[in-house]
Design a binder for these strands. Structure first.
Length: 961
RNA sequence: GCGGGUGUGGCGAAAUUGGUAGACGCGCUAGACUUAGGAUCUAGUGCCGCAAGGCGUGGGGGUUCGAGUCCCUCCACCCGCACCA
């Protein structure tokens, strides 16, 4: 019988489903517990373009590992679900009117079909969908828990907010050491006198989920708030309208409370160094001093943070962020006009814009002066956009001699520069290098920088000018989105604006139905248009914002442990059994977002005693991206008479900014011109067929013009005119028209082949362009493998005969290699191990059951369909329903022993000869035999043998001189 | 700029602790079987050279009997962060 993957794969997939082969059970009380292993994939966002060949790379690797662990006797949790809330579905709804729940459900159905097509061993009974009310009920519940807790820095954990209220009523907040944005100190009496609204405002400054004024990208023209992704070069990506920063009341998560733990616990994780570094940089811990500068003729003090307190004698001015609350008060009448103009300029600039041109130095003098606490000199207070409101305190002491940005600023505005660090002992040291000797600094003179920093910190604390402080780059996470397709907040506000949480019994607060998904006036969430829904009895108003995408994905790995539980987010028994994710596989794009938020939520739940582990993901593998080839057509951007005006050009001309790069379909290039070459004028017509949005464009070639179906030649030989295309390797995405659907590959080669091929391409962590060049080799291998079990007439022909030593050696070599490679996640090298074994057994004409049945087990995690087909034909084993129930083979070193070893003999390190010596020969014997080999005579004759190095089982090296 | 990573045949890549560089596959060459081949099989295939031999893991230098692997230095590319006080 021919190997027919289409037939057998369908059959076995059906068999697996019907017999619930991959169902995983949580242990029942009193039942003997198998050791657990949790293999998790980052769940996908079900996008409209479906799964492409890049998605399965990680899924295949994790599936192999899950199957391998299962065959080793572990109870393996290997679930899958969908991160189903998100912006694309909402945008699609605005454009087409299709309800996000409908399009999401359709996409999920399609994803499911595509996933099923690849033979994964997911337990679909545990499927999770973040947009399902039964799921987001618990997302809302966790949010309420965060709302009801604060972070106590002394206890180093989250504690109930009631405890804080108790303390406030007994002792005020002076001695409370908590993560907070509360600045004012109050006494117990104050607290007890506060109104409900005042108390609420104070508590908000402590809650882990809290509301504060935050800034959003506001686009007036579109009447909507934009995500960072939707803003490009300071204007909206759609339409190119101006975008500005707008203050809005937003929910936030106090992730900064966990900064220290998020940083510290990184050490114990088996993550790549690259990823850990990314997280460390994101958290951005720096040590320094928090200080206060007095303002001349004012009660106000300016709070700053500095990592270089040693340079304070060089602090000749101060800079506040334009948004700093003191700016208005400090500005003098004389400077008012200039400051206002500057502020106007700044608000017109988006975050991105401000970050994009960092080289431009801008600022304005407030007219006010502060006093340098150590020199007692008056120093001017400026504002400047290079100081960011949300980093540190939003104000700095500027030391132009030892900070490049301060230096640039001082130079531009002609401010005083005093050198305070002598770096002459450290040639090549830069301004920020913390190296050198202090000068012009009074009592610090002559000290080395690190000592000076320490000395200064002591003085600052002793003289009560400030204190040591650790600062983080990490910011609290904005948790509000002015969107429809997300989890509604289980919060309502009373007439005073005080937040009231819903009770668990009220959950889930379901997302109401809607038919118009455009934002409500003022950029509010579309939900704000549902007045009935928004307005509650007794004058309560519901929150109309929804939660961001990362809400649902921050805890989904826990839901899989007990996916259908209606009473808890997951039962404690289940959580204590599964504990944490042993292996997490996913892309680097979530390195700081999802992975940071999940870790925070997990730590919070740990503080509450709801999960037993400090970290959720023990080991993490980042699969590389499978890229596609992107074909671009280069067209001139300018418009003529309102039409797109294209000049057909050569590469050199196309390099400028005036040219648009329009991604076009790979097939288009293949049909009408090859990649990296030119397209002829026929292709312009084809291009218009394919992109009707360019039908009115003007195409100007060197010998004529093509416009609206007319070609007007100005010279002979117009057919030769050309367009320039260029190809690049990049992301596989709908917008680049280069998506390769795995279904097509599976249809042609089978999913076993697809799985093996994706692994064979190279290390999982590595990114690589999709290329089907080598897939025939894998397909050929599977046919050869199949052929081991069949005779020339195509009949199944396996014999019960004792295997030979050679056959056993081939088998056990493969078993050893595959086992060790799986353990180190080197699936790419497992495939060649199968190929070598197959080729060798073919040469040996081996069709013995004892050998082949082991090989079937060995390949089962990689190619589960063919493995089950052959397992069944071999008669399997009595108590197995599938090869997946069999025990994974382990090798026996006995079979790998050799009688003789072929030694390379090198002269001066260069291999010159080979000789077979007995495997058990001693070093001395090897040396003697090697020197007697005829083949090396010509290399050592007439030379002195200085040394002979013998490495048993490896090689012999003769050093001559 | 800072941080992380990668660099090996025509191509994807292997080489787990310093010990035969290029496993395995693609491609290519020749041959066999074929009406035919985009099927299958056999042999060959790092580069230069008729050969002996020489040269080869981004460039240069070093340690070592021996370096793709360790150290120094330079270069190129990719990813992440980026006015972080």
């Amino acid at each position: 019988m021919e190997y027919n993957p289409r037939q057998i794969e369908k059959k076995w997939r059906q068999y697996w489903v019907e017999n619930k082969i991959y169902k995983v059970n949580n242990p029942q009380a009193g039942q003997k517990e198998k050791p657990k292993f949790y293999v998790l994939d980052m769940f996908p966002y079900p996008s409209g373009s479906g799964l492409h060949v890049g998605h399965p790379l990680g899924y295949i690797a994790s599936d192999i590992f899950a199957r391998y662990k299962r065959m080793q006797g572990y109870n393996v949790l290997h679930p899958m679900g969908y991160d189903a809330f998100g912006l694309p579905a909402e945008q699609y709804a605005i454009q087409t009117g299709v309800h996000p729940s409908k399009s999401t459900a359709d996409n999920i159905a399609r994803y499911r079909q595509q996933l099923d097509n690849l033979g994964f061993s997911f337990d679909w009974d545990r499927e999770v969908n973040t947009s399902d009310p039964n799921y987001y009920k618990w997302t809302q519940w966790i949010f309420l828990q965060l709302f009801d807790h604060y972070y106590d820095n002394d206890a180093k954990k989250a504690l109930p907010i009631e405890q804080l209220e108790q303390r406030f009523s007994h002792e005020g907040n002076g001695r409370v050491n908590a993560a907070t944005s509360q600045e004012e100190i109050f006494s117990a009496e104050d607290w007890n006198d506060f109104s409900v609204a005042e108390r609420d405002a104070v508590l908000m400054n402590y809650r882990l989920a809290y509301r504060k004024t935050g800034y959003v990208n506001w686009c007036e023209a579109l009447g909507t708030v934009l995500a960072n992704d939707e803003v490009k070069d300071g204007v909206s990506e759609r339409g190119g309208h101006p975008v500005e920063r707008k203050a809005m009341l937003q929910w936030s998560l106090r992730i900064t409370a966990y900064a220290e733990r998020l940083l510290g616990d990184l050490d114990g994780l088996e993550w790549s160094d690259a990823l850990k570094t990314m997280q460390r940089n994101w958290i951005g811990r720096s040590e320094g001093a928090q200080m206060f500068f007095n303002v001349v003729d004012s009660e106000q003090k300016i709070e700053i943070f500095t990592t270089r307190p040693d340079t304070i004698f060089g602090a000749t001015y101060m800079v506040l962020a334009p948004e700093h609350p003191l700016v208005d008060e400090l500005t003098t009448a004389g400077q008012r006009e200039k400051i206002d103009a500057y502020l106007k300029y700044v608000t017109a600039r988006s975050d991105r814009e401000r970050q994009a041109d960092v080289k431009v130095v801008t600022g304005e003098f407030t007219g006010a002066y502060a006093i340098n606490p150590f020199t007692n000199k008056q120093i001017p207070i400026w504002i400047g956009e290079y100081v960011l409101m949300d980093y540190g305190t939003g104000a700095i002491m500027a030391v132009p001699s030892d900070d490049e940005r301060d230096h640039a600023f001082a130079t531009k505005f002609e401010l005083e520069i005093i050198d305070v660090i002598d770096k002459s002992d450290y040639p090549g040291a830069g301004m920020q290098d913390k190296l050198g000797k202090l000068i012009n600094s009074d009592f610090l003179d002559g000290m080395e920088v690190p000592d000076a920093i320490e000395e200064m910190l002591k003085r600052i604390e002793n003289e009560d000018l400030g204190k040591r402080r650790v600062n983080y780059r990490l910011r609290d996470a904005n948790f509000s989105r002015q969107r429809y397709w997300g989890e509604p907040f289980p919060i309502r506000y009373d007439a005073d604006g005080v937040s009231h949480p819903l009770t668990v019994d009220d959950l889930p607060l379901e997302l109401p139905d809607l038919d118009d998904f455009k934002p409500a006036s003022g950029g509010k969430s579309p939900l704000a248009r549902l007045e009935d829904w928004m307005t509650e009895e007794e004058g309560y108003l519901r929150e109309t914002d929804t939660m961001p995408g990362f809400a649902g994905s921050s805890w989904y790995f826990l839901r899989y442990m007990d996916a259908d539980n209606p009473n808890e987010f997951a039962a404690q028994d289940a959580i204590n059994y599964w504990r944490d994710v042993d292996l997490y596989v996913g892309g680097t794009e979530h390195a700081v977002g999802h992975l940071m938020y999940s870790r925070m939520w997990h730590k919070f739940l740990y503080d509450k005693g709801l999960v037993p582990t400090v970290e959720p993901f023990r080991k993490l593998i980042n699969q590389g991206m499978i890229q596609g080839v992107i074909e671009y057509l280069y067209l001139m951007k300018s418009k003529k008479e309102g039409f797109h005006h294209f000049k057909c050009s050569r590469m050199a001309e196309a390099a400028g900014d005036d040219f648009a790069r329009i991604p076009i379909h790979v097939d288009f290039v293949q049909e009408y011109g090859s990649s990296n070459s030119h397209l002829n004028i026929d292709s312009i017509k084809k291009f218009i067929d394919w992109r009707p949005d360019y039908k009115d464009a003007i195409f100007e070639c060197s010998f004529g013009t093509y416009h609206r179906g007319q070609f007007e030649a100005t010279k002979e030989g117009a057919e030769d005119s050309r367009l320039y295309t260029h190809s690049e390797v990049g992301k596989m995405s709908k917008r680049y028209h280069n998506v390769v659907n795995p279904d097509d590959v599976v249809e042609r080669y089978g999913s076993d082949c697809f799985r093996l091929y994706e692994m064979f391409l190279g290390p999982v962590e590595q990114s690589k362009p999709w290329d089907t060049k080598g897939i025939d080799g894998v397909s050929k291998f599977l046919r050869k493998f199949w052929g081991l079990f069949f005779n020339r007439d195509g009949e199944f022909d396996v014999v019960e005969e004792a295997p030979s030593k050679e056959e056993l050696k081939v088998l056990h070599t493969a078993i050893k290699k595959v086992n060790s490679d799986i353990e180190r996640f080197a699936f790419n090298t497992c495939v060649p191990a199968f190929m070598v074994a197959t080729n060798n057994l073919r040469d040996l004409k081996c069709n013995k059951r004892d050998i082949l049945i082991e090989l079937v087990k060995l390949i089962a995690p990689f190619a589960p369909h063919i493995a089950d087909e052959l397992w069944f034909r071999l008669g399997g084993m009595d108590d197995t329903r599938t090869v997946q129930d069999a025990e994974y083979p382990t090798h026996n070193e006995e079979y790998l022993k050799e009688d003789a070893i072929r030694y390379p003999i090198a002269i001066n390190g260069k291999t010159r000869h080979f000789a077979e010596f007995p495997a058990d020969a001693s070093k001395d014997e090897l040396e003697k035999m090697a020197l007697q080999e005829e083949g090396i005579a010509r290399w050592i004759d007439g030379k002195t043998i200085r040394k002979v190095i013998v490495v048993p089982n490896r090689m012999v090296n003769i050093v001559v001189g």
